[in-house]
Design a binder for these strands. Structure first.
Length: 764
DNA sequence: GAAGTGATGTTTTTT
DNA sequence: ACATCACTTC
């Protein structure tokens, strides 16, 4: 049973076998790092290390799950006892156990970004600050990075540099807001994402005995995507393994070239520090440079592009998969046309290379770009799924019900309370809510506690009593019933179902459907034991369910991962994934690289790493597109081609004509006198790909033009051969024969066609 | 307190 | 383009 190690190349194998002492694995894209981590863990277990002494940290639930499954394949059920999960989920689990030591209940709520912003908004309002100056997003990110740098509100207030920055930004009160925010979260029994890290650090800092317990428990530590860790995360890791007498069994895997989360505090300094911190203890460094994912043109393009970055760990990835296809570049006049051309190309690739939809991904810099893409994929009848953006759990109606569920578990949860205290409407208006909130602020009480004692006008008072009753009864049900039964009860008692039932509009029906989907989800949580791992001693309570979903993102939506769909997602979300064919769209200056980061060298480098991540997702086909104009804020913007395309040596590109001309690959465009039609709304004319395969022209949209109008230079559409350009016309008046060049034809691209009989539609 | 209307800013990425 | 939010009116 030792054969599993034979599946690794020599370097991978060494990285997997050197289980004792510190190890740094620098792993290029597609170099099999997950494989190394999996086999490493499997190897440990085979050697007799108890699975529960192994801690494996990743960034996404998806990566964690994949890892778990792959270990299971090698070592079987024992894999279930490995502590494997995201930083946030593992730390939350520990914090629930130790909650009392830091003044929290094990039932603490996790505030998501929206909750956080809402709390901040309330504080700003109460402090009578101008919220156009005190922008919640800015403040949230400042507080977040403070926490990630271990700066408490107090340290913040004493930090001259921060104070000066705040004064310059005309927001001198940020440190006060930070302080209040912390108090409020604590009072509400809530932690935000950063707290899950920060509070654990603090817990270990203040309670050496607790830290000791975990040092003993986790004998082997593994960290994936180490380049994305922030200072705080590394701090926690260090506490766990970097101490006097520790065997320092830690393995971190990362790639500085794929560090794309600097904006939320990640720093590749951690990689450098790691090397420094552990070098006295015999650190071993392995570099995985063979890329098993992509063909040579793609890999080399990636290498060349990343060379434009200043600092980096010396590393050059290579592929033994052969040259493969060159990278295709498509230039279009507008974002709409970009959508069309991507649609075209997808159809073509499916036909010519027998790709499934699920082999294909469209990646973009900003989620907003999905709109246009979706519109055109829909027109082409190409099935797709959009990942990212707001997840199922972030939809209004879903959040509404979840807010009631959260209140049942933790009535001090202020954000949940605010959300539903008057929804469905029960006569507790804004002014009442503000009053309650203010009283809470003054007396250091939560809104819930204020509610319990409030004296208000009798009518309002009655409504409040009603609300209190719902929450209290919900709480009782949550204790006695399982998650599903409790949720059903709450959904009915709160009148949420009734409320959405009354809305008979299309959206209303969708909302009701979503509510039911949520309830179904809870049901399967109760029935399904897939979630159960011995390590987390799951039960089926409502509280347990809420803990489970609090850290889920849209990427974890399983229903989206099955079936034959083209994937649409941001480049950030695509990290760690791979597809046979990848489209990177919107490659324009100010979009990719983003205008937000292109002014600073560091920002630009990060954008370039992001581009590096994007192109290295592709196994065989890589298509880069850019549009000369696109709508932004409802206004037309004119853009230039991204510098990143120019940074790819031309010999990796399929045709360079796209870089010059307005039209695709192989022929020059014909300037049209009647003003450009391409892309600007108007009729939609698909451009089929292959003459042999069934062309994907919708006959309903095909309108043959009178043959007299066809001239040399016309661009025409043929039902079978697709789009072509008229190169020549000869023959007499009634027997005119056109020589037409069809780009998409497989065999002879130039065809001679009798205009009298042919059905051709003039495109321009 | 609810419901309707006009002004305003927003979009970089996510656990 | 779109949503959110302040403001008005009932």
């Amino acid at each position: 049973m030792s054969s599993y190690l034979d599946q690794l190349n020599p370097v991978q194998r060494q990285a997997a076998e050197n289980t004792d002492g510190p190890v740094l694995v620098v792993a290029g894209p597609g170099s099999g790092k997950t494989r190394v981590l999996t086999f490493r863990i499997a190897h440990l277990i085979e050697k007799g290390v108890p699975p529960w002494e192994i801690l494996s940290l990743t960034f996404t639930n998806k990566a964690a799950k994949e890892m778990q499954e792959r270990i299971e394949k090698v070592v079987g059920d024992k894999a279930r006892n490995v502590w494997s999960g995201t930083f946030h989920s593992i730390f939350a689990r520990i914090l629930r156990v130790e909650a009392d030591k830091i003044g929290y209940s094990p039932n603490f709520t996790i505030y998501d970004t929206e909750d956080t912003k809402s709390v901040l908004g309330a504080i700003i309002k109460e402090m009578n600050l101008d919220k156009t100056v005190y922008n919640v997003n800015t403040i949230r990110s400042r507080i977040s990075s403070a926490k990630s740098s271990l700066i408490t509100p107090r340290l913040y207030a004493e930090n001259e540099e921060l104070k000066m920055q705040d004064r310059q930004a005309k927001m001198p009160y940020i440190s006060e807001i930070y302080l209040k925010y912390g108090e409020r979260c604590k009072r509400a029994g809530a932690m935000d994402f950063d707290d899950l890290l920060y509070r654990l650090y603090e817990l270990w800092q203040k309670n050496p005995d607790v830290l000791e317990k975990y040092r003993k428990r986790f004998k082997y530590l593994m960290v994936d995507e180490f380049q994305d860790t922030n200072t705080l995360q590394y701090g926690i890791i260090r506490k766990l393994v970097h101490f006097e007498g520790s065997p320092r069994n830690i393995c971190v895997v990362g790639d500085d070239a794929q560090s794309i989360y600097a904006f939320r505090g990640a720093t590749i300094q951690n990689i450098l520090d790691f090397e420094k911190d552990f070098s006295p203890y015999g650190i071993k460094v392995f570099k995985l440079e063979e890329n098993y994912r992509s063909t040579e043109h793609i890999v080399q393009a990636a290498n060349e592009v990343i060379r434009f970055n200043k600092r980096q760990i010396q590393k050059k990835i290579w592929s033994s998969k052969g040259n493969g296809q060159k990278i295709k570049v498509i230039k279009t006049m507008s974002d709409a046309e970009e959508g069309k051309r991507v649609g075209d190309t997808i159809v073509e690739q499916r036909n010519r290379f027998h790709l499934s939809n699920s082999d294909i991904a469209v990646l973009y810099r900003t989620n907003a770009q999905s709109r246009v893409m979706e519109e055109y994929l829909r027109r082409y009848n190409i099935p797709y799924r959009v990942f990212g953006g707001l997840s199922f759990y972030q939809r209004k109606e879903v959040k509404d019900l979840i807010a009631y569920l959260r209140l049942a578990i933790n009535p001090r949860d202020e954000e949940a309370l605010r959300r539903v205290i008057n929804f469905p409407k029960r006569g507790i208006g804004d002014s009442t809510v503000d009053k309650i909130s203010e009283m809470g602020g003054q007396q250091n009480l939560t809104m819930w506690e204020v509610l319990l004692h409030v004296d208000a006008a009798t009518r309002t008072q009655k409504s409040i009593q009603e609300f209190i009753k719902i929450v209290q009864e919900s709480g009782q049900k949550a204790e006695t019933l399982n998650a599903y039964e409790a949720a059903m009860y709450i959904a009915k008692q709160s009148k949420l179902i009734e409320e959405y039932n009354q809305d008979k509009t299309v959206e209303g029906l969708g909302r009701l459907e979503n509510l039911n989907a949520l309830l179904d989800g809870i049901k399967s949580f109760v029935e399904d034991d897939e979630f159960e791992t011995a390590a987390e001693q799951q039960n089926k309570s409502l509280g347990s369910y809420l803990q489970n979903i609090a850290l889920l993102t849209d990427m974890d939506d399983e229903s989206k991962q099955t079936g034959d769909y083209v994937t649409l997602m941001s480049v950030h979300s695509a990290k760690g994934l791979e597809f046979k064919s990848v489209f990177v769209v919107g490659l324009e200056e100010k979009l990719f690289p983003s205008f937000m980061s292109m002014d600073t060298p560091d920002g630009l480098d990060e954008e370039r790493r992001l581009f590096y991540v994007a192109i290295t997702r592709a196994e065989q086909f890589l298509t880069l597109t850019f549009a000369m104009s696109r709508y932004k804020f409802g206004q037309m913007q004119y853009n230039e081609m991204s510098r990143f395309i120019e940074e790819i040596p031309r010999d990796h590109l399929e045709s360079t004509s796209a870089l010059r001309s307005g039209f695709s690959a192989d022929y020059e465009p014909t300037p049209s006198k009647s003003g450009g039609t391409s892309g600007v709304s108007g009729a939609f004319k698909p451009r089929p790909s292959s003459a042999n395969a069934a062309p994907k022209i919708d006959p309903a949209l095909f309108k043959p033009s009178p043959s007299e109008q066809i001239k040399i230079g016309s661009k025409v559409l043929h039902l079978k051969f697709g789009e072509g350009k008229v190169l020549n016309i000869d023959g007499g008046k009634d027997n005119r024969i056109a020589t037409i060049f069809f780009e998409a034809a497989d065999d002879e691209k130039e065809k001679r066609i009798m205009l009298k009989f042919a059905k051709l539609q003039i495109v321009e």
